[in-house]
Structures are given as structure tokens and as C-alpha cells.
Design a protein around this nucleic acid. Structure first.
Lengths: 247, 247
DNA sequence: ACCTGAACACCGTTCAAGT
DNA sequence: ACCTGAACACCGTTCAAGT
């Protein structure tokens, strides 16, 4: 294929951690997780392996930095309160939908994010990416009027749904093959599910049709609304939605 | 949770795919994902690398088979309708809680499952593990009285929450270090969150206390109930869709 | 059919040596 | 301080050769 566009003669810029992370993201996007090697990196950056190790401790740290960079960019465009009082601010549910869609699209654009985020959430929640995601959603959960002892549960449910659902939608393109059309992929899966033993998998069979026809984004938002409905059901906004600022 | 120390000389049994998968699971459990190598496997099974390749195509397939085996065992103990009419059947929500707890415990016992399941759900939903999990939960969603066009959304929300939340609880033990006590781990994370910049991470800071004190299982079930509440809110069980078996 | 084990290509990481 | 690139230990996979 024509993916051999090698612009490795870019030695004008000095090597930096930023440039290394940037190249790592590009490699992950184009050749997948298995394609990110220090050798490929050195070729792309026209340098030696030792140079990379001067800026980055090891591959795990590089993967973490790549994840941070992409997630940071996705959450950076999150909606902020408008400066002009004329424009009405988004409602908390709408803001949550916007943040969730931002993460959805980031994972869609960078399928390796799904696995990487799952690893980071469980293995290194002290890093910046976990609190960043939790904060971005948790702030809006608070604005929904959820009482304090429900913050963590509600935010966890949202975060896990968002990352899990987005992860399942992405990554239909394998590293070792031509990326299939999304519709074709869904059709293959639906067909496989329809051919399962109806005694062992009655539900998968029954739902195969919905799988084939569904729209990813619509489906994602429907599930998000379901979780939001659960929050509202458990914490009905009886009072005015804005919590009083009195201590 | 018996820590079984197995001697490597067990040459009485012939090599088989089953025995290879069993050894792979043991290696994954004891030395983590990076510890599963064909060399370690050959040593443990007292054989050569070629012998393993006779029964298993490659490492990916082996990882998939290990995942299947563990998930299959976890879902095999799922509650079945009691044979004696005297014992009342569990309600659908209780059954969903039981299945979810089974997966929670499987992931807790085998932390590598979290990443592996995320990969399988997105990359190979045609395999048996995805429809198995979806079916196990989806059957009960159906029993809740959810209308057909809501089956997939409700089941997806549940599955993604369960796998995500369970995955975050597990895997606090790194492969390259002594496994920390869970309480100590949570305390470390909470401390790290408390030390974040309050302007950038107000929510993470505010919620750090809940993080330190919470009980994993209780927290997991609270989130599950939140998603269940969302299902009930969106699909109120107005009429008894399924009259229970007349006693 | 099932297994052996050397060989191959490739990978992450290190380090003495250069500027 | 920053970079080079050979060297090392290790890994997944193959395959001619054995039973």
C-alpha cells in the first residue's frame, strides 16, 4: 500500500519528549499497538534507540504519555460556561453527553485507547488520566444535584459505560489486515450471532438484527441516557437543580 | 482461594489443548500477562515449543482460550430455575446481580481478564465469549419486561458497567512487584488524588475520601443498582409481562 | 498423529563511547 | 546535556527431524 510516506528527513527539529510522543501516537494510529516499536520510532525520528531512552523511561511510560496526550486533547475541548450571559449554558446532562461523545470519538479515532485506558484505570489511577476523566464527568454529576455520597457511584457508572461502550465500537480494524467497513463488520458479527445454537444463545440470536442495523453513535447515546435516567431515578432533583452555595 | 503449588513433573498425563490452557491460566494468575511465554509453558509442561503449537495456533488463540475457559467457568455457576417449586426463583434483578458478581469475582481472581475481555469484546465479538456474556445478562433483561427494541441498549449498559467497574477494582497487583494490600492501595490512590491541584481536579479531590473508605463489592453493587434503576425508569414494569410459574 | 529442539527474526533495554 | 549504535537477553514462531 501507499503508506510508506517517509518524511524522516526532519532533522531540523531537535528531539524532544513531545515529538517522541507525537510519533508514537502516529504509529499506534497507523500500524496498531504491535506496530509501536523502538526501532520503528528511531526510523521515523531519524535517531538512535538510546536517544529515545534519554527522554522516556521505557515503553510503558511512552504508552502512558501517548494515552495522556490523546485523552487530554479530547477533554480539552469540553464545553465551558459561556462568557456572554445571553447564550444559555448547556444543561448538566447535555454537558455529560458532550464529554462522553468527545471520549467516544477519541477512542474511535485511536482504537488502541480502549485497552490502554482500561489498563490505566485499574493499574495506575494515581496518574493524571484517571482523575482527569473522573473530574470531567464528576463535576457535571455534582451539577445534577446528586447528593455527595452518591457522587462516586454515579460517576463510576457513567465512566465505565462510556469507556466500555466506546471501546466495543472501536477497534474493528485489526492491525494485520485491511480495515473493514464498519457496516460489513457489523454484518459479519450479526451473521455469526445468528448462526449460534439457539438453545445456548437465545438472546444473542434474538438481538443480532438490532446489532446489524444500529447506528453506533445513536446506540452509544441511548445507553448513556439509560445510565443518566438511573441517576435521576435514584436521586430525583426535587430541589432546584442548582445546589445552594450556603455551607 | 487456594494457592496451588504444582510440580513441573507431571508427565503421566498426555499433552492436550486443555492442559495447555490450564497451565496458561495458572501462569497468568501467578506471574501476570508478561509471564505467559511459550518457554515458561514448555518448562511447566515438560515439553517443547513445537508441541504446544501442535495444539494451539498461536499466542493470541491461547489467550482467547484462557479467557473463554475462565469466563465459561464463572458463568457456568449462574443461577438456574430451581427444580423444587417450594424454593422461589430469584427475581430477574437478583439474578442479574448474581451473574454480575460472578464476573466481578472472576476478574478479581484473574486480573488479566479485564484487559483480555475488553480486547475480545471489541476485536472478536464473533467468538463465543461475547455472546456468552451478553446472553447471560440479556436473558434476564428480557425477563425484566424490557421491550424488544430496548434489549440491546439495556444489556450493553449493564455489560459495560460490570466489566469496567470490575476491571478497575482488580489488578492492583503489578506483575513486577509485591502485591499490595487492597486497603493500602486505595489509601495510596486517595492520597494521590488529595494532593492534586484543587483548581484542576476539584471532583477527584472531593471524592478521594469515598475512594479510601469504600468497600469494593458494595460499591460495585451500588453502581449496578443504578444502571438497573435506569432500566426500570425507562421501561417501567407496568404489567406483569411474564406471569410466574403457578405454584 | 504427535512431539523435539535448534534456528530465525524481532523486540525492549543497556551502555561505553562520542559530540 | 544529549545522542549513537552495537550488544544482550528474551520472545513468538517455524520446521526438519524424530517417534
Amino acid at each position: 500500500m501507499a503508506t510508506r510516506t517517509r518524511r524522516s528527513q526532519r532533522r531540523t527539529e531537535a528531539l524532544s519528549r513531545e515529538r517522541i510522543v507525537e510519533a508514537a501516537v502516529e504509529l499506534l494510529d497507523t500500524v496498531g499497538e504491535s506496530g509501536l516499536t523502538f526501532r520503528a520510532l528511531t526510523e521515523r525520528l531519524a535517531t538512535g534507540t538510546g536517544a529515545i531512552y534519554w527522554h522516556v523511561a521505557n515503553k510503558d511510560e511512552l504508552l502512558g504519555a501517548a494515552t495522556e496526550a490523546v485523552v487530554g486533547a479530547a477533554l480539552a475541548v469540553e464545553p465551558v460556561a459561556p462568557t456572554t450571559p445571553a447564550a444559555p449554558a448547556d444543561s448538566p446532562p447535555d454537558e455529560i453527553r458532550a464529554v462522553a461523545l468527545g471520549l467516544f470519538e477519541a477512542i474511535d479515532d485511536h482504537p488502541w485507547l480502549a485497552t490502554q485506558l482500561a489498563t490505566q484505570l485499574s493499574r495506575s489511577p494515581w496518574g493524571s488520566v484517571t482523575p482527569r476523566i473522573f473530574d470531567s464527568i464528576g463535576r457535571r454529576v455534582r451539577a445534577l444535584g446528586v447528593p455527595e455520597d452518591g457522587w462516586f457511584t454515579a460517576t463510576s457508572a457513567l465512566v465505565h459505560y462510556v469507556l466500555g461502550a466506546a471501546g466495543q465500537n472501536a477497534a474493528n480494524s485489526r492491525a494485520d489486515g485491511p480495515p473493514k467497513d464498519r457496516a460489513e463488520f457489523l454484518d459479519d458479527v450479526a451473521t455469526a450471532w445468528e448462526e449460534l445454537d439457539p438453545d445456548d444463545y437465545p438472546f444473542a440470536r434474538a438481538v443480532a438484527g438490532q446489532l446489524r442495523d444500529h447506528d453506533d453513535r445513536e446506540q452509544f447515546l441511548a445507553g448513556l441516557d439509560l445510565v443518566l435516567a438511573g441517576i435521576t431515578a435514584l436521586h430525583p432533583p426535587s430541589k432546584p437543580t442548582h445546589p445552594p452555595h450556603t455551607p
